[in-house]
Design a protein around this nucleic acid. Structure first.
Lengths: 215, 215
DNA sequence: AAAAATCTGTTGTAAAAACAACAAAAACAA
DNA sequence: TTGTTTTTGTTGTTTTTACAACAGATTTTT
């Protein structure tokens, strides 16, 4: 069950074969799409980073999640359930593959691009599902400490090492874990005081064997 | 983009056509599957209710999420990221469609069951994704009040009415929102005192126009 | 029909987290 | 390189939440 498919590898096919699909570029902070006005499109992030966010009545931004290379997104993955819009915003300069939903299956039969895309779409979606599932599991921790330990434990496994770097800023991490940043800093400090981890900026070393026992 | 497919409608095809796939029954509290030992199976819940949970070293259960009729699940939707097992447990008596992953695409060509299944699998998965996305959005609320209001607001939209019933027990709701039940009860009481909602057991009436402005 | 289990509801207390207000360091842009 | 913005880091205060301990109502099981 390999799932290492990179969309960029076959995008060059696109320019040669497919007239329907297009790639659009977005500058930092530009709105890529919204989720309330139904656009019947699917999107794949080819380059850059983006996030899905909601804005409340006071203009506060709440980040639902971050999107990275190869992530699929679009309203197809969401049900309408509020009168407030969801925005996908470019966090850095982005390149986005725009896929009109209705043409997904009935493009030209010879279109190598669509053949390859359809073959790999399930895997792209499964990857996305795995990401969301993972975040959900993080968020089922009731305490900041629990969220942190789950997150760090996972990073250690991914890096196959007890020494690793947190790949996002600590501010972003606080957003991702849905906690106040300064409260998170206090917990990080406590983890150091208790000799469970050591830390220098974003560099972490895990000192205990089984982090999850510490929750 | 209709997504109302019900697996049960074509399950009778199964018994006539397909020798590979099987349906298993599970009694309440039985373990349907685990997610760490790779079984390379996908599952569809035909009847009953189940939940995905993790147990910590003290035996405390943490529910990652609930599964309902037509939900697809299995380790394909998850990445391995911890040394502690995930369990799918029957909450009520269940009927589960067991789909060995490798046979998904190469069953007998005449097998109407697999043809129909493959045609509808993407929609089943998208439904699942929508559910998880929705829950994630709920969990991005920092306060119990915010979680409650998002949840209730959604129910009002789904029911197309300001009067509706919470379809799960309040204990389950607290689990779902990842908050302490008694703390949630206090917030529910406060919402009543502030005349934002009225409530009798699980029956809710929303008294304000735009709940999300109250967060 | 009785017993057991689950669910709703309440209260007080302890613990945790959010919020606010800064300062220094680092990264980025003009 | 200088100014601007973002990020890391710390500390006190206030608010929120979890936890514990109940009791009555409801549902499920035997």
């Amino acid at each position: 069950m390999k799932r290492n498919f990179d969309v960029n590898h076959f995008v060059e096919e696109l320019s040669k074969n497919c007239a329907i699909t297009e790639i659009k570029k977005f500058k930092k902070d530009e709105i890529i799409t919204t989720y309330l006005i139904r656009r019947n499109q699917m999107f794949i992030l080819l380059k850059g980073e983006a996030y899905l966010a909601r804005y409340d009545s006071e203009g506060n931004r709440r980040i639902i999640y971050y999107l990275k290379k190869n992530d699929v997104f679009g309203e197809a993955f969401y049900k309408i359930h509020t009168n407030r819009e969801l925005f996908v915003v470019a966090k850095k300069d982005c390149e986005v593959l725009m896929l009109p939903y209705e043409t997904l299956e009935n493009c030209n039969k010879d279109c190598m691009f669509h053949i390859t895309l359809l073959k790999n779409l399930p895997d792209l979606i499964l990857n996305r599902v795995a990401d969301i599932n993972y975040r959900t599991e993080l968020l089922t921790n009731k305490s900041i400490k629990g969220k942190l330990l789950s997150y760090l434990n996972n990073l250690a496994i991914e890096n196959n090492s007890k020494k690793f770097e947190i790949p996002i800023s600590l501010s972003e991490l606080a957003d991702y874990l849905v906690v106040d940043r300064t409260a998170m800093m206090k917990q990080l400090k406590k983890l150091q005081d208790d000799k469970i981890i050591s830390k220098n900026k974003n560099k972490i070393t895990i000192l205990k064997d089984d982090l999850l026992n510490e929750v």
